[in-house]
């Protein structure tokens, strides 16, 4: 991001504009607010850059996937994670900024867990990064609690009738991570290989962990080398 009082030219496809491309109205309001607060010494532009860089480039669902893959591979770790997530996650360095009070909920054949924030968009940033647009939409926030199976169906997830669905409503105080069930046919897989099976959505509860490539029928196997579908 450019510093105060100087902005890089906007990306542009045309050459017939006599002046720099005008940012959108809200973009100009944000620039104005930032300019005023920097002038008054209330914010540090370098800190803003660091925050943006962190969430654009460094923190994302790969952190949560590592926790899940380890829980699948290490029963002692899993027990500790379910009993006291904050302590375990702090030891891994996955804490702070909206990850201070974490609860990990385990999917089982009897219970599937799903996470929502009906108030706004509370989400475990240190483990999953910034929430996707659909997590912030009214369609998801309003319906996840009321009709979780219908929402799951829209994500392509159909659960057995005997599996109950529990929806956890995040708040500013408590955030949740779903520990998906380890897929069948992965007993021989190492922790590093399991990572590719753990999607962001599976840790929100709107997907199941992916099947390994070896377990997929040949006609549906994706044309990738790591078995990951995108």
């Amino acid at each position: 991001m450019a510093g105060l009082g100087q902005a890089a030219p906007m990306p542009h496809d045309h050459s017939d504009h006599p002046h720099a491309l005008l940012p959108s109205e809200p973009a100009l309001r944000v620039k104005a607010l930032e300019t005023i607060l920097v002038r008054k010494g209330l914010i540090d532009p370098a800190a803003l850059d660091e925050i943006i860089d962190t969430y654009q480039n460094k923190i994302g669902p790969q952190n949560g996937a590592r926790v899940v893959a380890r829980a699948w591979s290490d029963p002692v770790f899993k027990a500790a994670l379910l009993a006291d997530a904050d302590t375990v996650l702090a030891e891994l360095g996955y804490y702070g900024r909206q990850g201070e009070h974490m609860v990990v909920v385990e999917n089982t054949p009897e219970q599937h867990n799903m996470v929502v924030c009906t108030l706004c968009s509370c989400y475990p940033w240190p483990l999953l990064g910034i929430p996707p647009g659909w997590y912030k939409s009214d369609a998801y926030r309003a319906r996840a609690v009321r009709a979780p199976r219908a929402v799951l169906a829209e994500f392509g997830v159909t659960l057995p009738a005997e599996t109950s669905v529990r929806v956890w409503d995040s708040t500013a105080e408590v955030r949740y991570l779903v520990l998906p069930m380890r897929p069948a046919g992965t007993d021989a897989m190492e922790e590093e290989d399991l990572l590719a099976l753990v999607s962001r959505d599976s840790m929100i509860g709107t997907a199941l962990a992916a099947l390994p490539a070896a377990a997929l029928p040949p006609t549906t196997a994706p044309p990738t080398t790591n078995g990951a579908q995108t």
Binding site: A27, V30, L48, I52, I130, A196, A207
Partner: peptide, 23 residues
């Protein structure tokens, strides 16, 4: 219906979303 985290949605759709978040 993305099944893996290997192709995440854009974190911020527009630069000002990132700026107002960081502020």
């Amino acid at each position: 219906d993305c099944l893996t985290h290997s192709a995440p949605d854009s974190v911020f759709l527009e630069p000002w979303h990132a700026q107002v978040f960081a502020l």
